[in-house]
Simulated assay, not measured.
Amino acid sequence: MRVAVVSESFLPTVNGVTTSVARVLEHLQRRGHEALVIAPAAGSPSEYAGAAVHEVPAVLYRRFPVGIPTPLVHRTLADFAPDVVHAASPFLLGAHAIGEASRLGIPSVAVFQTDVAGYARRNRLSAAEGFAWRVVNLVHDKADLTLAPSSAAMSDLAAAGVQRLARWGRGVDLDGYHPRTRFEPEVAQLRRSWAPNDELIVGYVGRLAPEKQVEAFSALRGVPGIRIVIVGGGPSESSVRRALAGMPVTFTGPLHGRELARAYAAFDVFAHTGTEETFGQTIQEAQASGTPVIAPRSGGPIDLIEHGVSGLLTDPDDPRSLARAVTALTGDAGRRARLGEAGRRSVLGRTWESFGDQLLSHYESVGARGPVLTRALRKVDVD
């Protein structure tokens, strides 16, 4: 199978969309499929997991490269003659690619990953929220299938009028993120540096952006015996630093690979603050690490956390709910251990391999054609 992956984000930009695309490309390579990537110009590598990477012109918005529709997309798709177009979190570039795929007679799968209406909802802009969902409907309506990562996202998309929906979650690296990492000497060293007086470490991993609402950690001001560790960077860093000024907090900047795995292992509690997550990949990574998790009862976390069993869900409308959840775990090591163990069990089986195979099935469900027929159609189009 030949798969053209059109992504609104790719390396070196690191976020949930990029990570998901990277795992998809790695799986396609493992299964012997051929792939190509079209992404906004950001200094991407020329290839990844055997897939050639084609950049299109982009403009920066909040330090984020936004791809601009260009005839290069049509030419690239026509030359590659894919069996299916995979549009990751489609916006301007993805919507253009879906349209070009339709004109070329190529089936397309759109992966919903970003709550574009969330900003409007968070800022109580009801008219803008309605417009945002109309844009989402317009973009996804042209795709042969839209994949949603959670039940909440499925409901939102259906309410917005998006049809041809299916569920597709995300895998997690169960070996890279593992409870045994906690016993590595580097983790003990991290804990000593972050919590020299053996305080409870409450950690966050993710982008520092308005939609992540990391400023909500200010609700922990005055909670005794804790240290906050913020792993990540982004346009809201100065705002987060102001909100948490005077609190016992460490900012590490972005971490990757083993450094990130050790950070999860060093946390006593992982807390997520955003109420607009369509999925919540960092929640899965913390659960795989055996670290107890706290997240709002909103969006993707609802599917990932069974309250009181594999984590704690907080009230998204009550800022103090986070403080109450952290306080409940501060002096109860046994409960933290039980939640961490149950969280680990809850993600067993959620490998990228299993979700990658599910994705291939979704490609086939939209009638991804064999390369001979697709190339014949391309030849007719070019001639």
Score class of each variant (00 low, 15 high):
S7N: 07
E8P: 03
S9P: 00
T13V: 14
T19D: 00
R23K: 13
E26T: 14
R31E: 08
P40K: 03
P40S: 01
A41L: 13
A42D: 10
A42S: 12
S44R: 09
A49Q: 09
A52Y: 13
V56G: 08
P57D: 06
R63N: 15
G67P: 15
T76P: 12
L77M: 08
F80K: 11
D83M: 06
V85K: 02
L93K: 06
L93N: 07
A97E: 08
G99A: 11
G105C: 05
P107N: 00
A110D: 03
V111S: 08
V111C: 04
F112H: 15
Y119V: 04
A120I: 12
S126A: 15
S126G: 14
E129T: 05
F131D: 00
W133A: 01
W133M: 12
R134E: 15
R134F: 03
V135A: 07
N137E: 10
A143Y: 05
L147P: 09
S150F: 01
A152N: 09
A152Q: 06
A152T: 10
D156A: 15
L157M: 09
A160Q: 05
Q163A: 14
L165P: 15
R170M: 01
R170N: 10
L174F: 05
Y177K: 03
H178A: 11
P185Q: 03
E186C: 11
E186Q: 14
V187L: 13
V187N: 11
A188W: 00
Q189W: 10
R191V: 00
A195T: 06
A195H: 04
E199C: 03
G203E: 08
V205I: 13
G206L: 12
A209Y: 12
E211H: 05
E215L: 02
V223T: 11
G225H: 11
V231Y: 02
R241C: 04
R242I: 00
L244T: 09
T252V: 04
P254A: 06
P254V: 04
E259L: 13
L260I: 12
A265S: 14
F267D: 11
A271K: 04
G280D: 03
I283D: 11
Q284G: 04
Q284A: 10
Q287R: 14
A295S: 07
P301L: 02
D303H: 03
L304C: 02
I305D: 08
E306W: 00
H307F: 03
V309M: 02
S310C: 04
P316Y: 01
S321A: 12
L322V: 08
T327M: 08
R338T: 14
S346A: 14
G349E: 10
W352V: 08
S354E: 13
G356H: 05
L359C: 02
S361R: 15
R369I: 00
R369A: 15
G370E: 10
V372Y: 02
R375F: 01
L377V: 01
R378Y: 00
R378I: 00
R378T: 06
K379W: 10
D381I: 14
